[in-house]
Every structure is written in structure tokens, then in C-alpha cells.
Computed example of a mutant assay.
Amino acid sequence: MTRAPITRRALITGVTGQDGSYLAELLLARGYEVHGVTRDADEVVTDGVVAHELDLATDSAIAQLISDVEPNEIYNLAALSSVYQSWQNPALTARLNGAVVAEMLAAVKLIHDRGNTDIRFVQASSAEIFGAPNESPQNEETTVRPTSPYGAAKAYAHGLVGAYRTAGVAASSVILYNHESPRRPETFVTRKITAAAARISAGKQETLELGNMEAQRDWGWAPDYADALMRAAKHSKPDDFVIATGVSHSVRDFVAAAFERAGVDDWQDRVSVSETLLRTGDAALQLGDASKARKVLGWSPTVKFDEIVAAMVDHDLALLS
């Protein structure tokens, strides 16, 4: 990959995750000096990223790291990312998804108040802050009413961004709807589905258990959403932005598309619903309106639902080759 001369410095928390890795590649290609927070030394970091080992769950040194690196742009992607796990670990969720954001924004404000560094903060928020919304599609004005510890912690962080923005900090909250890629771990239902479809196709697995197959989600392509995060940081006016495709599909639709791509015709005989996998407070429908991001940031999705599923299944089939 050819890289331009270094022009700005960025710090990414969650740099080894799906979104963090795509964002790091995007920024490096544009000549950024990219720093990333990793939980331990064994994590694989994108080539070219300066790694800083820091366990945000237990360590409060993130403010010192921000002071030391003094980045121009901070992207907070670190989080406990499972709604299900947030019910098992609500205190950890509150720490990672909420309190850490407070510490980061306080550190950003100190640098901002000195006035000698252009510093911008971008929070990766979530459609889960809306809980089970009464209106569809949802936009930046939709009532924040979370229905899970995950959504509540993200809502707190979302509110903090608005508060610090009022205080003059260039902080944006980018409300990301579901976004997928082959880099999703199997702890996410989408990758669980595509990996199972590939293994069943290859005769290495017999069946697949899922939760609510009728839940509808707005699924996009993860690299597009990394691009939206970067656009929010670069925009002259910090704000809140919904990032979504505006098209919803059910989990059943995802399953059907994945098994069709894998060449499994009798998928309905292979997939069952388990009561133990049903999630408390799960919204029946999440559908985002990204009109503001289209107009203000010039952002739009580039990859369609069937293409996303196909890319993930093809990747999982290739892993079995």
C-alpha cells in the first residue's frame, strides 16, 4: 500500500477490531501517523500503527496517553460490543462504553482549552441508544430511550459528546447501525451465520441455532462506516450523524442469503431457534435515516446487502479450503 507523507496524527481505541482495522488502513493511506490502543501485546495490529498497550476495563491511563500523543483526531471505537454480554456484565459495560468516554473527553477538553492543537473527537455510537423506537426510520432527532445496559452506556456517552460539544470541544457522535464484513468475529450473529453456512456446505457442521430470526436490522458494509467516521472528524462543524443504509432485512433474510451463497438448499431443516439465545429488550426493527450524513458529509453506502453476505460467505468458504 502506497502511503502519502504524514499530515496529521490520529489515535484509535479498539484499533484491532473490525472497524478499527479498516479505519487505520484508511488513515494510513492518507498519510496519517496512526496510534492505536490495544488490550494486550498479543493482539494483531495493522502494519504501520503505533500500538499502546492499555486495558481500558481496568486502567484509567487513557487521559495520560491522550496528553502524551496529543493527536489531532481521536476515534473511540473501544467497547463491550455485545448487547447480550452487557446483561451479563453491566458494570463492565458501564465502564468501557460510558466512563472511559468521560475520561477521554475530559482529556480532550484540556488540550482544546490550551488552544495550541487542533483536536477532534469522534464517538462510535450505536442504534441501540434508541432502544425499541416508536418511529421508523430513526434519525438524529429520534428519542434516546435504550432498553439494554449496552444501549444505556452508549446513550450516556452520546450525551457526554453533546455536552462537551456545547463546551466548545469539536466532538461528534456517529450513530452506527449494523455493519458487517469478513473481519467480524463469530461472536456476532452475522459471522456466526456465514461461518456455519460455509461449514455446513463443507460437511463440517450439521445444524445452526439462532435466536429471534424475525428481528429486522439495517445492515451496511463496515469499510463504508469507517469512511463515515473519518468524514465526521474532518467536517468543519462537529455534530451527530446517523450512518445507515435505509434498508432493513430480517435475520431470516440473512440466513437465506448466506446458505444460498454457500450452496445449501435445505437450510430450513438445518436452522433452529433456541429460547436461550433470545435477547431481552431486543428491538423488532432498526432502520436508520442517513439523510443528514448524505447531505452534510457527502457519505453514502457503496455495498448492497446481498454483496455483503456474499463477501462474508466467500471468505468463510476460503478459510475451509
Results as ranks from 00 to 15, higher is better:
Phe241Ile: 03
Leu297Ser: 04
Arg261Cys: 13
Trp267Lys: 14
Glu214Asn: 06
Val296Pro: 08
Ala262Asn: 00
Leu278Val: 06
Trp219Val: 11
Ala283Met: 13
Ser274Gly: 09
Gln286Ile: 09
Phe254Asn: 01
Asp289Thr: 04
Gln268Trp: 00
Arg217Tyr: 05
Asp282Cys: 00
Arg294Glu: 13
Lys292Pro: 04
Asp289Pro: 01
Met230Lys: 14
Gln286Pro: 02
Gly263His: 07
Arg294Asp: 09
Leu277Ser: 03
Gln216Phe: 10
Asp240Pro: 07
Ile243Lys: 04
Thr280Gln: 12
Ala256His: 12
Phe241His: 00
Ala284Phe: 11
Asp224Glu: 09
Ala290Val: 01
Leu287Phe: 09
Ser250Thr: 05
Ala257Leu: 05
Met230Ala: 15
Ala228Cys: 15
Ser291His: 10
Lys295Arg: 07
Glu214Tyr: 05
Asp253His: 02
Trp219His: 07
Asp240Ile: 01
Gly211Ile: 06
His235Phe: 11
Arg231Tyr: 13
His249Thr: 02
Val251Glu: 11
Ala244Arg: 13
Ser274Pro: 09
Leu278Asp: 01
Pro223Val: 01
Ala256Glu: 14
Ser236Pro: 13
Asn212Thr: 07
Ala257Thr: 05
Pro223Trp: 06
Ser248Gly: 01
Ser300Leu: 03
Pro238Ser: 01
Val264Thr: 08
Asp239Phe: 12
Glu275Asp: 15
Ala228Ser: 15
Pro238Arg: 02
Gly263Glu: 08
Ala244Lys: 05
Phe259Gln: 11
Leu229Thr: 09
Arg294Leu: 10
Ser248Tyr: 00
Ser248Met: 00
Ala284Cys: 10
Asp266Ala: 05
Asp253Gly: 06
Ser274Ile: 02
Lys237Phe: 03
Thr276Leu: 12
Thr280Phe: 05
Ala256Pro: 07
Arg231Asp: 14
Val242Ser: 11
Gly211Arg: 03
Val255Leu: 15
Gly288Ser: 08
Phe241Cys: 01
Val242Tyr: 13
Arg270Tyr: 12
Tyr225Val: 12
Arg294Trp: 09
Glu260Arg: 11
Ala262Pro: 00
Ser300Tyr: 03
Gly246Trp: 05
Asp269Glu: 15
Arg261Glu: 11
Asp253Asn: 03
Lys234Trp: 06
Leu277Val: 01
Met213Leu: 12
Leu229Ser: 06
Val255Arg: 15
Ser300Pro: 02
Val255Asn: 15
Arg252Thr: 07
Asp218Glu: 08
Tyr225His: 11
Asp224Ala: 08
Pro223Gly: 07
Trp267Cys: 15
Asp282Thr: 03
Ala244Ile: 06
Asp269His: 15
Met230Asp: 14
